[in-house]
Simulated assay, not measured.
Amino acid sequence: MDNFDNFSVSEKVDATELQRMIAIEQQKAQFQAQVHNFTDICWDKCVDSPGSKLDYRTETCLVSCVERFIDTTLTITNRFTQMVQKGAH
């Protein structure tokens, strides 16, 4: 039960829309937390000690991390797009 029994139709619509918006914001926050975690992992993996210039190994590692991040982001975005399209039909 949605606990909206005593609400008018317009109030139910507003409450449902608010719930949807909250869910979207929660998803955004979860995604940002994952990005932050991923950044920490890449930093810990690639950067031994920060300096004024990146050495070749560090630069290569960071480039690889960024490329994997982009690949992962595109995969997730495509999957969400497919889910939305299936839900719209």
Rank of each mutant, 00 (worst) to 15 (best):
D2V: 04
F4V: 14
D5R: 07
N6Y: 14
F7V: 05
V9H: 15
S10L: 14
E11P: 00
E11D: 10
V13H: 08
D14V: 12
A15E: 09
A15R: 12
T16I: 12
E17C: 15
L18S: 10
L18I: 02
Q19W: 07
R20P: 00
I22L: 13
I22G: 02
I24V: 13
Q26F: 01
Q27Y: 03
Q27R: 07
A29W: 07
Q30V: 04
F31C: 06
F31R: 09
Q32A: 09
Q32E: 15
A33V: 03
Q34F: 07
V35A: 10
V35G: 01
H36N: 11
N37A: 14
I41C: 00
W43D: 06
C46I: 02
V47P: 00
D48Q: 09
D48L: 13
S49G: 04
P50I: 02
P50F: 05
G51A: 07
K53Y: 05
K53A: 07
L54R: 03
R57V: 10
T58H: 01
E59T: 10
E59Y: 10
C61N: 01
L62D: 00
S64M: 04
E67P: 01
E67N: 09
R68L: 05
L74A: 03
L74I: 03
T75Q: 13
F80L: 08
F80R: 05
T81A: 10
M83C: 05
Q85F: 04
Q85E: 14
G87L: 10
G87F: 03
A88W: 10
